[in-house]
Design a protein around this nucleic acid. Sequence first.
RNA 1: GUCCCCGUAGCUCAGUUGGAUAGAGCACCAGAUUCCUAAUCUGGGGGCCAGUGGUUCGAAUCCACUCGGGGACGCCA
Length: 590
Amino acid sequence: MDLFVTFQDHVSKIIDDLVATGVVPKDAARKGVIVEPPRDAAHGDLSTNAAMVLSKPAQKKPRDLADLIVAKLEDIDIVHSAQVAGPGFINIHLEQSFWPSIIHSVLDDPENFGRANIGNGEKLNIEYVSANPTGPMHVGHCRGAVFGDALARLLEFAGFDVTREYYINDAGAQVDVLAKSAFLRYQEALGKDIGDIPEGYYPGEYLIPLGAQLQEKYGQDLLTMEEAEWLPLVKKESIEAMMALIRNDLAALNIQHEVFFSEKSLHNNDGAMIASAIESLESGGHIYQGRLDPPKGKLPADWEDREQTLFRATDFGDDVDRALKKSNGSFTYFAADIAYHKDKYDRGFTHQIDVLGADHGGYIKRLKAALKAISDGKADLDVKIVQLVKLLRDGKEVKMSKRAGTFVTLRDVVDEVGVDPVRFMMLMRKNDAPLDFDFAKVTDQSKDNPVFYVQYAHARTHSLLRQVQNVLPGINSAILFSDERVKSASLQRLVDEGEITIMRKLAQYPRIVNSAAASHEPHRIAFYLYELANEFHSHWARGKVAPQLRVIQEDDRELTTDRIALVAAISATLKSGLMILGVSAPLEMR
RNA sequence: GUCCCCGUAGCUCAGUUGGAUAGAGCACCAGAUUCCUAAUCUGGGGGCCAGUGGUUCGAAUCCACUCGGGGACGCCA
């Protein structure tokens, strides 16, 4: 149940009435009419701009129109009063007795409170991480991984049928380098002195076990083969080994993909899948043979002007048409990507999301253009760019360099600070804003660290749920929601300002989930949780000074029951939000 | 030269898709606990929302241009 949606309906019906009585013209645009929490809580519980939006079509002064709406709003039983304010806002105060119903809607089904249905069960594919399979993940990959995973959880909660997908870039030159590097380690494992790893090869020690593995599997055999013969064998082995590393790293972050899609598979059978994708574009008239202007800026050394196969991306909002074949006749990366997105569409994904690194910003338009063309406008694609993470230690930036050996792996970070802080911190920023990740702050166990602040609030709710046994024997959080005493609590004694503030906050959760999901911005959940935790901690502290505000009142079982129901609702909501972020909700922190 | 992202308190950032007097944390200053976990809370100062114009009842938010920072610009993925 979303209070704001409920009132959106109320207002909408009132406008219908005004249309029926001829006050508002039938064709008046009502798109802009919204019901939202006022910026200042003192103004009321809800506010709507209906009168201001409709004043022009109705040819009435906003405040006069507002008076008509106010009268009708006051007929609604949970409305205590409504006033016109400022230029024509309508502020609505609800009956105080309404708020406890929020607690009931949480406790009736705690795991589903706030669950939205904007997805309507439709299939959605989210592709994220997609790090090259050439080594373990480093911190740079971390943010995209966490962001993508949280977004996937959020969209699931919002009613989409979500598939998490990883695109393995196993077709390019980089995996050849990987295989050659592994081959060196293989020779090393056979006792050969390989000296320094040559320039252009991957020097990482993580390839040493792979060399040993190759030695075990092939013995001396590979040495007798030509490169053309051993390369595919070693490549296959290497990619599998690297993907195993990467899956392990992801598992350390609590991330699991359902589908791992191989780029190489698109190139099988002479690129049959890519060719057929291009064919279908061709039959739509989106392909032609032509020339492109040379790129601006630095001219590539090997630039040649030639006629080539081009996709008419400009028809779909891109800046230039895009090449699909390299001069050597093979397909471009983009051509393969078209085939990949077409494949996703063919698998039924009309909603697609790609999470990409900051350096891929220039790629967005052509991807969107391609999917639009290939799906005939039936599928939508959102490309989320995650900005760089700046790693700080003691306030100083940690420069990363593969050669200097100051290369920080994802595993290093997770081992040092733990999964929860890593995930939460990555989600405390909007995805397209740069992020400072300070080891000292992230491991700090104080209110300065939002992770602990929110988790501690959750732990505190459970502390209360444990303590209350003295007053209400037999209660525990696991069966709380079926406890008759809690279920039948009248909740009419939750009248303290602090308590009502918290109930108001709880009432906003569905709305936050909705907007976060609709805008693909999981960080909104993180901010909401911080605010809810803050309200709870504040209220708690008031009990220090005013013991009558404490939740547990030894001599008043009824009041304690009401308050424990509120605490349970807070607890469930915190847990729900943390679950969306993939962060644990501890029962105790000592 | 073109395109994308960004510019909000001293610092790090939110800003409910166009709403009322622009918020939070850090830092700074002043306080609170004989404790339902102080891993907490209360109060205070601090702003040309980069700039200029436009759209309208109303702009940090939308549009145009300018300045400043970052990124991308066939055959790297």
